[in-house]
């Protein structure tokens, strides 16, 4: 449905996006995962025809979006990272405005507004001013504004930034419904790997403007098939012990989390016996030991040596 071909964007001397190839099939839910400044927003701005790439092309059903931006705009719903709403107007007035600019037929406008408000769970607050809404409610109306014209493709740029877990779950569930029940193609950008894990069929991981890995979740996690992730709970934390574990040649990463340490090490190694020996030498007791399933966060860490929030 949509594909980008060697997409690059340069602002003066800085290359923000470099050689990005990605595609979205019809009805797919695709995640674009990466830390802040990875180039996700620039990539989706180019895909949605808001920005022109320095080089490369974006194609919708084989036709260049760069040459004919009108084609993609007709089928696209974009949810920006900002709350792009008129704060002085009510939720209903905002939706009516967006319905009208998207030329939703007058006869259908009212019913679509009500359906959309119901979908985002704010039908009973439709007459309230946006400026009186909580962050989560504003985010929901922000999404609703992009749905009135029934877009075939929905692009969401970090739509859950700065909101409470309840609103976040509501939004994720809403997007999942749109994708599964309405067949809307979704491109979802985030730096929260749990969201992408929960929502997306396939994931592109971006860093420093480049796609560094892509595939389904299982394909990405298979990158870590030669590694084990383990969580060790100690009776006391010791910096010496952490340093000593890092010196074991099979250990790739050690991270302190409260009274536990997370260790990523090569598979089939004698890491456990080494660990017990080191703890004994420092009179530290191992309270609990747990092998963990790797996450996309671990994949990112493996690929870049940094966490998503670094």
């Amino acid at each position: 449905m949509i594909e980008t071909i060697q997409l690059s964007k340069r602002f003066k001397e800085k290359t923000v996006v470099e050689g990005v190839d990605l595609y979205l099939d019809k009805g797919e839910s695709v995640g674009l995962l990466g830390p802040n400044g990875a180039g996700k927003s620039t990539t989706i701005s180019i895909i949605s025809s808001l920005l022109k790439p320095t080089t490369g092309d974006v194609k919708l059903d084989g036709e260049s979006v760069i040459k004919n931006p009108g084609d993609i705009r007709k089928v696209l719903g974009v949810v920006p990272q900002e709350i792009a709403l008129y704060q002085e107007l009510t939720a209903y007035e905002n939706l009516k405005f967006f319905g009208r600019i998207y030329r939703v037929p007058k006869s259908q406008l009212e019913s679509r507004i009500q359906t959309t408000l119901e979908l985002v769970g704010l039908k009973d607050r439709q007459k309230d001013l946006i400026k009186t809404f909580s962050g989560g409610m504003k985010r929901r109306i922000n999404i609703a504004s992009a749905l009135l014209h029934h877009p075939k493709i929905l692009i969401l740029d970090e739509p859950t930034v700065g909101i409470d877990p309840q609103s976040r779950n509501y939004i994720l569930e809403m997007i999942r419904k749109l994708n599964e029940q309405e067949g809307t193609t979704v491109l979802y950008t985030s730096h929260y790997m749990e969201e992408v894990e929960q929502l997306c069929d396939r994931v592109y991981i971006m860093d420093h403007g480049k796609v560094i890995a892509s595939g389904s979740q299982s394909e990405l996690l298979s990158i870590l098939s030669n590694e084990d992730t383990m969580k060790v709970q100690l009776n006391q934390m010791s910096n010496e012990l952490v340093k000593a574990i890092l010196e074991i040649d099979v250990v790739r990463h050690v991270e302190e989390t409260g009274d536990s340490i997370k260790i990523i090490a090569k598979k089939s190694s004698n890491i456990i016996s080494n660990l017990v020996k080191l703890a004994d030498q420092q009179n530290i007791k191992i309270m609990n030991f747990q092998m963990e399933n790797p996450s996309l966060e671990d994949v990112f860490l493996h690929l870049t040596g940094r966490t998503l929030r670094d």
């Binding site: 974009v78 792009a84 008129y86």
Partner: peptide, 13 residues
């Protein structure tokens, strides 16, 4: 600044 302009650009206006 609030992103409304971009939304308008993406609309048929």
């Amino acid at each position: 600044v609030y992103g409304l302009w971009d939304r308008l650009i993406l609309s048929p206006v």
